[in-house]
Amino acid sequence: MIRFKTFITSLLISLSLISGAAQAKEAEAKVTPKVIFFDVNETLLDLGNVGKSVSAALGGRDELVPYWFTTMLHYSLVGNEIGQYNSFAEIGIASLEMIAKQQNIPLTSEQARKAVLTPFRDLAPHADVVEGLKRIRALGYKMITLTNSSDAGIAAQLKNSNLAQYFDGSLTVQNLETFKPDLKVYEWAQKEMNVAPEDAMLIAAHAWDIAGAEQVGWKTGFIIRPGKALYPLSGKPSLTGKDLIEIAEQLEADAK
């Protein structure tokens, strides 16, 4: 009888420990940051008009538009490595001129400048963005844009897209003269917002941006915009959704 009571006691203790561990694991799995940082281009704003403008500048060669964007990203990272900073817009213009020369397409510097700058500062948000931002803001999170754009560039974009009202501030790489996903950018951003890495989160539609934020200990939310995919050698994002509304729904569930 004594042995049976001892067994029951041990069993109850074990079950209690298992239940406590499960509750702790569930609490740890919940995504409840204090500050949410948002990438802007492609994540919030639709670059369709930029693509059309760049394609027109390249003689209607639609297939060159993704090449132009990746070239722009590539040379922003080249700038990081060699210590040479130019604004994202300047790099975009230079990349467009480079591709035109590679493809023997006539294009003047002024035409390249107009093709990039004119549409880039007047972009519309994706269809899901306004509702998604409203729902996330209703949860009480501090919301900050963190972009590779310049200070003037993001100010124009948020104003023209009517999204400025949803954010508590904007941070750009212009202040560091270093582009994401350099880890210094995320570390600087968290210090600016006085938030610990584990209390920061990045929402982005770029696998390379998610990888950078993850590396410094942030929570991450990946939006799977058309044509986007995660980098298999990086970790799994905290949240994943086809649009910002799905990310908002998961944040709402975790806030309960």
Score class of each variant (00 low, 15 high):
Leu107Tyr: 03
Ala94Phe: 12
Glu252Arg: 14
Ala155Asn: 09
Glu97Val: 03
Ile203Asp: 03
Val116Asp: 02
Val216His: 11
Phe179Lys: 10
Leu58Phe: 05
Ser149Lys: 10
Ser238Asn: 00
Val35Cys: 01
Arg113Ala: 15
Ser170Trp: 05
Val65His: 03
Leu239Met: 06
Ile247Asp: 06
Lys34Thr: 13
Leu244Met: 03
Val130Met: 01
Ala189Ser: 10
Tyr166Leu: 11
Gly132His: 01
Leu47Lys: 04
Glu198Leu: 10
His74Glu: 15
Met143Thr: 12
Ala189Asp: 07
Ile223Trp: 04
Gln157Asp: 00
Thr71Gly: 09
Val78Cys: 07
Val173Asn: 01
Lys5His: 14
Leu202Gly: 09
Gln84Asn: 14
Glu63His: 05
Ala156Glu: 12
Lys236Asn: 11
Pro106Asp: 08
Ile91Val: 12
Leu11Cys: 15
Phe167Asp: 06
Ala22Gln: 13
Ser87Ile: 11
Ile210Phe: 08
Val35Ala: 01
Ile2Arg: 14
Glu28Leu: 10
Leu230Ser: 03
Val65Cys: 07
Ala29Ile: 13
Gln190Cys: 06
Arg3Gln: 14
Asn80Val: 09
Asp243Gly: 11
Ala229Lys: 12
Ser161Gly: 00
Lys191Ile: 07
Leu163Pro: 05
Ala248Glu: 05
Asn160Trp: 00
Glu63Tyr: 10
Lys184Trp: 00
Arg121Asn: 14
Tyr186Trp: 01
Ser53Leu: 01
Lys142Cys: 06
Val35Asp: 04
Glu249Ala: 14
Gly59Ser: 08
Val50Ser: 03
Gln102Ile: 13
Trp188Val: 05
Lys219Thr: 07
Ile223Leu: 09
Lys256Gly: 11
Ser109Val: 06
Ile93Trp: 00
Ser95Phe: 08
Pro66Arg: 04
Thr6Lys: 14
Ser55Gln: 10
Val116Gln: 01
Lys30Ser: 13
Glu214Leu: 08
Gly212Cys: 03
Glu131Cys: 07
Lys142Trp: 03
Gly59Gln: 08
Tyr85Glu: 07
Leu77Tyr: 15
Met98Arg: 15
Ala253His: 06
Val35Met: 01
Ile245Met: 02
Pro237Lys: 02
